[in-house]
Design a protein around this nucleic acid. Structure first.
Lengths: 145, 145
DNA sequence: CTCCAATGATTGCATTTTGCAAGTGATTGC
DNA sequence: GCAATCACTTGCAAAATGCAATCATTGGAG
């Protein structure tokens, strides 16, 4: 948690720059948990089925906050509780997550239960993703974007 | 390059299963090079701006072939040359790549030159991705899917 | 008050992955 | 022949990851 802007990007290619932010096995799972399970607290992310460890989770949360995908705030009721929110930048990762879901449901041995939300989104047509993003904005962005 | 099917997936979640295939900093760059630069040979991937090293490239190509995203064949003209092709599964990664491109062009300091192809695709409307996939099928899948 | 469980982390250490340079064996061009 | 080119492989240092234990703070119970 120190360097503010020393980024020597590997290249200016859009695909590469995206992968530099979330191109690992954990970051998008955190985003997924915020989007589809309403998780906001450290302990909640820790409880996910994939079993992320505390140091990796702390590292990824810090990197996502630094990248501007999440914000971190103290819970007003519990000073110990940190509460994480998606930014507009984070909410706009939903189309990417939705396309990954669609690809995996077509080509990977997904759990039918876990595939249900994605299938419902597909049945909802093109507007479903936009509607889901609007719902996330109402929860994570208190009015202001 | 040995275990054929011992995969104890971290979970059956579609997002997770996708990330297990291409959730790293290099795999989607190889796919990108095949899609947008027409690269098919080891040396061509090696020449990309991001500077992948030979062992990582060999490892990723093997993993992508094993996952069914790519196929590997000997070049009939040059026995030394291996030629890699996208499968239908690989071609259908284009919507994911396109959404990553769109997100990065909105939120990351992309190189305007490299952003041009993505911008053109966006201007082409919803059919542009499908058309690009059709073009890839004609090059990579000789008739048969 | 004191104790104690719960919070979001940090630390130490073994294992795994990555990055880099050099080398390998099989072909091809001259 | 003989150097150049091809797709890799190998060795080794550095970085990232995984795991368990631990930390400091806080809020609540007694």
């Amino acid at each position: 948690m120190e360097n503010s802007e020393a980024s020597p990007h590997r290249s200016g290619c859009p695909i590469n720059l995206g992968l530099e932010v979330f191109g690992d096995k954990w970051s998008l799972l955190i985003v997924r948990d915020m989007m589809f399970s309403g998780k906001r607290h450290f302990r909640e992310f820790l409880a996910s089925e994939e079993g992320i460890s505390t140091n990796i989770l702390a590292d990824r949360l810090a990197k996502l906050v630094e990248a501007g995908v999440l914000t971190r705030a103290g819970d007003p009721a519990h000073k110990l509780k940190a509460i994480y929110s998606l930014t507009e930048m984070g909410i706009e990762l939903l189309p990417i997550v939705a396309e990954i879901s669609r690809w995996s449901r077509k080509y990977q041995p997904v759990d039918p239960v876990m595939a249900a939300t994605g299938e419902a989104r597909d049945r909802g047509g093109p507007g479903a993703v936009a509607a889901q993003m609007e719902a996330l904005r109402r929860v994570h962005l208190n009015g202001e974007i």
